[in-house]
């Protein structure tokens, strides 16, 4: 016979809900990513392309800077022919307005692309969020599930995208300027570009999921289930 539970055991049960282990959250997230594989590939592809573009711009700029800094007049001339706005001798190439504009633009593309992709992916799952809340999931747990998923997606997509951007930028630069492009580049700078790409992709992916997931998690369960 079910009766009123004693205050004590109720408290314990409630506390149990609070400490849902990270391992289980991770397990559910990974499962959910695997099951929705093709839908996720779509989101991840957006991420890959956006991050690839961003890293491509960064790396291209660094490669050009390497050529410029070499001080070789022949290389400077090829750069000019290739459409670079060259600064006065001795100044850094990256400081030109055109370069800064390109980086900002690629960041914007990244932001819109990734946030939009994640926003759509979460919006499709409002009903699932509502159902989970009916089953006793806390807001924080729903949020955690989605952040883990976005984090894993973001990491994989950004890593692939960033490397892709690096490869394309290197290949293109070597086609236009010959092997000197690679020879003059600073490996540390390129490494930083790749890391920046990964960081930006991961961060935007998390931001893109955080907002809609928070909104959904805070809704009354019925509202979330009704929202399509």
């Amino acid at each position: 016979m079910r009766q009123h539970e004693t205050g004590n055991s109720t408290d314990q049960a409630i506390r149990k809900i609070v400490v849902l282990p990270l391992r289980i959250a991770l397990e559910i997230s990974v499962k959910s990513l695997r099951v929705r594989f093709f839908r996720n590939m779509l989101t991840v592809m957006t991420l890959v392309l956006a991050v690839a573009f961003f890293t491509f711009v960064l790396v291209s700029s660094d490669l050009a800077r390497g050529l410029w800094n070499s001080g070789d007049p022949a290389l400077a001339q090829t750069l000019e022919k290739a459409g670079f706005d060259l600064p006065a001798p001795g100044e850094s190439l990256a400081s030109t307005a055109k370069e800064r504009w390109l980086v900002a633009l690629s960041l914007l593309v990244c932001m819109v692309g990734i946030i939009n992709a994640q926003l759509m992916a979460v919006t499709e799952r409002f009903r699932e969020i509502g159902t989970m809340k009916c089953l006793g999931a806390l807001d924080s747990f729903v949020l955690r599930l989605f952040l883990i998923e976005a984090g894993l997606q973001g990491l994989a997509g950004s890593l692939a995208g960033s490397l892709l951007g690096l490869l394309i930028a290197m290949a293109l630069a070597m086609l236009r300027f010959g092997l000197a492009a690679a020879a003059q580049a600073s490996p540390a700078a390129l490494g930083l570009d790749v890391l920046a790409g990964i960081g930006v992709g991961l961060a935007l992916s998390l931001i893109g999921v955080f907002y809609p997931a928070l909104v959904a998690a805070r809704m009354q369960p019925v509202e979330a289930m009704r929202a399509e």
């Binding site: 409630i14 809900i17 959910s32 699932e128 159902t131 009916c134 089953l135 006793g136 806390l138 289930m225």
Partner: peptide, 29 residues
């Protein structure tokens, strides 16, 4: 929030007209 989650989790079971199962999970899950 905790008590409400507990209520939905332990005290009440819900059945909906549209079933509302989680599509990506198996029956057992």
């Amino acid at each position: 929030a905790f008590e409400l989650a507990w209520l939905r989790n332990r005290k009440i079971g819900y059945i909906f007209q549209t079933f509302n199962l989680i599509q990506v999970m198996t029956a057992l899950e």
